[in-house]
């Protein structure tokens, strides 16, 4: 059989797989369409959409520049504080867990148990933790900090592990030849390798936590989420507009900064 025939024989095979895949996707699409209940559509939806847009264009300026604790600037700072402290606590707690789930450091069974625990932590929605922590601390930003810490741990340790598992250990040999002790090897051989990568991961997570922290207000765990939902429920769209504008600006700025710093950390 020559090459051309071989290729020709291969072709229909792939086409069948492609067709089957597309067919299955279509089936899934039709099946999921049943979730749409159009009778729920309210007739004034259009008016509300228009009102929100108008609110965005004509925000409540007094709220945007208000420096008291109910003003947008303070709420944004509070949200940032929740995300920041949550990231700090989470990034520290994630370090031991990451080492415990790195298969080149601890025995495999321990690594798997810890990994399973981390998957559990990651899957449970932040809002559930938020409500549980409110029972611990009472409503307010403190509950939000604890929630952010816990949800950060899952992803942070997973990303830390990748860094730990491709550590360059050849440096340890040369430090051995210089006459370094084990502690010195960790401080000057391992830590410098981990620090930049870990920092880059933590900054990325801070970016995510900031978005998540805005949501926590919905359950009363502090931040800008609660005023947002109050304003919406009261149909005060200009207030909604100013809160959303503040939020978007903050997230855009933080994202820009975090990208800049992370590129610098990675490329040096």
């Amino acid at each position: 059989m020559n090459v051309i025939e071989k290729q020709y024989k291969l072709e229909p095979n792939r086409r069948v797989t492609q067709l089957v895949t597309i067919f299955i996707l279509c089936l899934l699409f039709v099946w999921s369409l049943s979730a749409i209940e159009l009778e729920q559509l309210t007739t004034n939806g259009f008016t509300i959409a228009k009102n929100i847009l108008v609110g965005m264009v004509q925000p409540d300026l007094s709220l945007l520049v208000n420096v008291t604790t109910s003003g947008v600037p303070y709420l944004l700072i509070e949200t940032m504080a929740i995300a920041f402290l949550g990231t700090v606590v989470g990034s520290i707690l994630a370090i031991p867990l990451a080492f415990l789930s790195a298969s080149n450091i601890v025995p495999k069974p321990i690594a798997y148990v810890v990994r399973f625990l981390l998957i559990l932590i990651r899957t449970i929605p932040a809002i559930v933790y938020g409500l549980m922590f409110i029972r611990v601390t009472g409503p307010g930003p403190f509950a939000g900090v604890l929630t952010m810490s816990l949800v950060s741990i899952g992803m942070l340790s997973k990303l830390y592990v990748d860094v730990i598992e491709d550590l360059d250990i050849s440096i340890l040999e040369s430090m051995e030849s210089i006459g370094c002790t084990t502690l010195e090897k960790i401080r000057f051989g391992i830590l410098p390798q981990l620090l930049a990568s870990f920092l880059s991961i933590v900054i990325y997570r801070f970016d995510m936590n900031l978005r998540d922290a805005t949501v926590l207000g919905l359950v009363g765990a502090g931040g800008i989420g609660a005023p947002l939902i109050f304003a919406m429920n009261a149909y005060r769209w200009s207030e909604v507009g100013s809160i959303l504008i503040g939020l978007i600006l903050l997230i855009l700025i933080v994202e820009y900064m975090s990208n800049k710093i992370r590129t610098k950390l990675v490329r040096g």
Binding site: Q40, G45, I48, R211, L244, L247
Partner: peptide, 18 residues
């Protein structure tokens, strides 16, 4: 930039609960 939950919240006002 907008968190999904906030978008969903706005969407419930426009498209109704569900």
């Amino acid at each position: 930039t907008l968190p999904t939950l906030i978008v969903a919240l706005v969407a419930t006002f426009v498209f109704g609960l569900g």
